[in-house]
Amino acid sequence: MVEIKIFQSIFQLKKEDWDLLTRSSSPFISYEFLGVLESTGCIGKERGQVPFYFTLWEKGSLRACYYIFLKSHSYGEYIFDWAWADAFQRAGLPYYPKFCSQTPFTPISDLKLLIHPDDLAFKSKFAKILQKAVSEVANKIGTSSIHVLYIPHSEKEFFPKDMYLHRKTHQYHFKNKGYNCFSDFLNGLEKKRRKQISKERNYIEKKSGLEIRQFTGGSLNESHAELWYQCYLSTIKKKMAHGYLNESFFKELFKALPDKILLLLAFRGEDLIAGSLFLYDKETLYGRYWGALEKTKFLHFEMCYYQGLDFVFSKGLKRFEAGAQGEHKIKRGFLPERIWSAHYIENQIFRQAISQFILDEGKSLEDFFEVIETKMNPYKKRSSDVKKS
């Protein structure tokens, strides 16, 4: 007999239990990452983002979890539904609160339905039980919708189309084709792209007067978090954006996950100029944040892409996820990847309208992918590709 328990804090669960469920996931749904978000006040009722951990237990043992957040806004999602919220408001209907399953402020395709390794064969069964529990709570609260963002391809089937609208968006990812170093990567590019990247790197190395220092693992300390936070704030101010994360978050994160963090800081002498922050696991480097106190030509490319690629090659990683937005990434070896989300809309009239919007959006996206592949792909064409053209 299974039992459903709902918790609103990660600290109500045991770390060893959570670690079993997330053993093959990214650092972003680790006990440490979620715990630091919570303990430093970056999520919670006052921030309009309350965690709900729908857990499934059997004989007193945690067997599965579906994590989701009750939100009073759409900040930090990067799969945008502001237009939907505006349409609800103009019709005199509340769009918030809504349920949203996504690691806060993190556009990473992580598992949403976490299953104990001994129960993977029961994932479909557990998924239905947990989703029913979420729907019941959503009805009691009166949410307008349930959104599941950044679904891995392996989980799409657990969010059936008779209930959820499936939406396609895109991000830019680098897939390592067996490159051992940056020069191997350059040799795989078309001549024009190769020359431009070499020019950009040469400028930073020989003409910028900057020194880029790398910190990870034991070399990270609290002073680095303080320096990094200056960079983070500079981006927030320039973009007039919301600062989702505070200085305490970065300090605690550097303590909790030092072996999953890569921090790059650029200095001119001892003066801080810029920084970029990444997280990584055994297979993937995740580019997350960038900030500059002083504008320097080509520095963004160096610190957000090229230094990251150097790290990928040195660690033998398979992927580098550079996030959404910015077609300039294509020229630098990052190609678009389809990203999936699922959306349950309670109001049937709005569901039909949003369904059509998603359909049209998806067609435009496929046209975009065709243009990228035929006209903008920076990699050398294989002989078989030349024959086809």
Score class of each variant (00 low, 15 high):
Ile4Leu: 09
Ile6Pro: 05
Gln8Ala: 04
Ile10Val: 12
Leu13Gln: 06
Glu16Ala: 09
Asp19Lys: 14
Leu20Ile: 13
Arg23Pro: 03
Ser26Lys: 00
Ser30Glu: 03
Phe33Gly: 00
Leu37Val: 05
Gly44Trp: 02
Lys45Asp: 12
Gly48Ile: 01
Phe54Leu: 06
Glu58Val: 07
Lys59His: 10
Lys71Phe: 02
Ser72Trp: 04
Trp82Val: 06
Phe88Lys: 08
Gln89Ser: 15
Gly92Pro: 06
Pro94Phe: 04
Cys100Gln: 04
Pro104Ser: 06
Asp110Ser: 11
Pro117Trp: 11
Asp118Arg: 12
Ser124Gly: 11
Leu130Arg: 00
Ala138Asp: 03
Lys140Ala: 11
Thr143Arg: 08
Ser144Asp: 03
Val148Ser: 03
Leu149Lys: 01
Leu149Val: 05
His153Met: 08
Phe158Lys: 00
Pro160Leu: 13
Lys161Cys: 11
Asp162Val: 11
Tyr164Thr: 09
Leu165Asp: 02
Thr169Met: 10
Phe182Asn: 08
Leu186Ser: 03
Glu190Lys: 15
Arg193Trp: 14
Lys195Ala: 06
Lys195Leu: 12
Gln196Trp: 10
Lys199Glu: 09
Glu205Met: 07
Glu205Val: 07
Lys206Gln: 14
Lys207Ala: 07
Lys207His: 13
Gly218Ala: 15
Gly218Lys: 15
Ser219Gly: 09
Leu220Pro: 00
Glu226Tyr: 06
Glu226Asn: 11
Trp228Gly: 00
Leu233Thr: 07
Thr235Trp: 01
Thr235Asp: 09
Lys237Ser: 11
Lys238Asp: 13
Ala241Phe: 14
His242Ser: 12
Asn246Gln: 06
Asn246Ala: 04
Glu247Phe: 03
Phe249His: 01
Phe250Asp: 00
Glu252Tyr: 04
Lys255Ser: 11
Lys255Leu: 08
Ile261Pro: 02
Leu264Gln: 08
Leu264Cys: 05
Ile273Cys: 06
Gly275Asn: 01
Ser276Tyr: 03
Leu277Cys: 04
Leu285His: 05
Tyr286Trp: 13
Arg288Val: 04
Arg288Leu: 14
Tyr289Arg: 12
Leu293Phe: 02
Lys297Ser: 09
Leu299Val: 13
Tyr305Trp: 10
Tyr305His: 08
Gln307Val: 03
Leu309Phe: 09
Asp310Trp: 08
Phe311Gly: 11
Gln325Leu: 06
Lys329Pro: 02
Phe334Cys: 04
Arg338Val: 12
Trp340Thr: 10
Tyr344Arg: 13
Phe350Val: 05
Ile354Asn: 01
Ser355Gly: 14
Phe357Cys: 07
Ile358Lys: 02
Glu361Thr: 09
Ile372Asn: 05
Lys375His: 14
Asn377Met: 13
Tyr379Arg: 07
Lys380Ala: 11
Ser383Lys: 12
Val386Ile: 15
Val386Asp: 06
Lys387Tyr: 09
